[in-house]
Design a protein around this nucleic acid. Sequence first.
RNA 1: GCUCUCGUAGUUCAAUGGAUAGAACACCAGCCUUCUAAGCUGGUUAUCUAGGUUCGAUUCCUAGCGAGAGCACCA
Length: 579
Amino acid sequence: MYSLEKIKIEIAGEINRMIGKDLVQASDLVYPPDAGMGDLSLPCFNPARELKKSPVETAKKLGSEFPKIDSVATVSVAGPYLNFKLDKIYFSKIIVTEINKLKDKYGNNDTGKGRRVMIEYSNANTHKEYHIGHLRNLCFGDAVQRILAANGYKSLPVSYINDFGIHAAKTIWWTFHPDNKYAKAVLADLEPEKRGAFLGEMYAASCQREKEDKLAKQMIELVMKKIESRQGEEYELWKKTREWTIEQFDRIYKELGIKFVHIFYESEYIDQGRAEVNAMIKSGLLSVSQGAVIADLEKYKLGVLMFLRSDGTALYPVADLALARTKVNNYDLDRSVYVTDTRQSLHFKQLFKVLELSGLKAEMINLGYEFVKLPGGMMSSRSGNVITYEDLRGELMKKAIRETGQRHDDWSAVKIETVAAAITMGALKFEMIKVGADQVITYDIDKALKFEGFTAAYLQYAYARIRSIIRKANDDSAEPSVNTGNDKADTENDKEHELIMTLSKYTEAVKMAGEEYDPSEIAKYLFGLAQIFNDYYHAVPVLKTDKATRKARLKLCEAVSSVIKNGLGLLGIGVVEEM
RNA sequence: GCUCUCGUAGUUCAAUGGAUAGAACACCAGCCUUCUAAGCUGGUUAUCUAGGUUCGAUUCCUAGCGAGAGCACCA
């Protein structure tokens, strides 16, 4: 258990002892709006009801009788609030020691007790663009996965790729169409790493062509049938182009530092799914209506979920069914989480209900997030109105190289590029994670290119500054620095204490983010911490002070850098030693 | 029509039912012969409307208004 929690429990325990009843819990202690009031506060409304006194009287009574304990320096009463100021020296010592001892483990807890949670995200389609909408899914899902691991769960990140839908037939139909001279010319001389993105371009072109060509729909369906037959020329083209996309995804995942324990493909689960559907029809769980196979969920107010079209072809839920069961059984899951756009939330409610009725026992969760749109309107891979991953990464990288180069004309091109890449990946991910999942993101590329304010670069910069101080301290550690005397000014003490208080709250941010599946909690926390540190940095000298103070401040800086590094790590974002 | 989400400063976002509703961007004025100015300091501006629950509501409930999304052969 972390020290902050211990102190809260200790205070709550003293209060309970005074009223002779277990009334107050550690979580009842809140943080006052202004640091000047205190570090922790107990609103006395609830205890007052129990004691049959007014909240103000209760606070006064509890305040006057509160015993002397090591962690608390002063107790004061402000109306109905009982405010506690922690002992700065005591608190500083235990928190900084705790962080520097635990280092990259600081913030982790065992809430999950090793329970096995599979989390599925980055469910992109093959044969289409990988755009910033997919990126939100990927970054959000990956951060949630890391946060669950930090909260003591056995986190199993997986991806599910839809490689077998009509979209694949559309892309293949037009890409290799005799009239498509453009594709033929481009493909003749295309670098392998650009093939995936090119298919996305062809998908949009195919949708366009489909509108103009009356026979297109039939031809595409024919291509789909041929692919489904798993033989012939179209099937070979499908296999080849599928690989192109998969290679593209692998490259993106590698670049972003994302690892899955397994990647599932729809084409591998469709047959098993059909078998399950047939069994469920027999058992009466599914029924035939208007020629189609459906689950009638009206009595659960969930409408109708369709599995097979009236022509017998399979819809998405067929493979979903098989995959859900395979996951739970093969990986011995306690919980199975799906990260999707909120527009699919009804679909998942329906699917989970069918699975429950069929006897599946794991806890099923659909984590929804709102979509990403552009200032000009909705993104659509059909119309090609998208910002692709490649475009965004390219723009960011260009800007990051320019900005880094301007600041360090003595750096080698390689060094500039390495740092710029870290800034680019940080910006990419942070912009997707920093707002709540229920907010629609209107992606403004100009804003995403900013490295100031509430951005990953701001956090990385704060980290780099600290590392710079620590490097300098190591260089001249033998040199006693300027002696400014032992007296710390009050303002310095206050800023230092605020910083330490914030460091201690990191443990709560990790816990909260885990409970709520909310990475933005970490992002907000880190920004607050970095703001306080930057203020401290400007106001308080670390190196140029007396020896004892310098040592203490270096330890504090070390602790701040650990927390920034750990927190960014939970968001999948790396730090740099210099920038 | 039914269901879900959202409505806070010029813009983009915060705020376990708690004290004076916070940031960032943008704009204006300052700060590099002290540790990286991708930084810091100061300044202007906001809870959609009407009820209800509560000692206390941006938060919970009801109704309305506004925006977006989903609801049988799309994924």
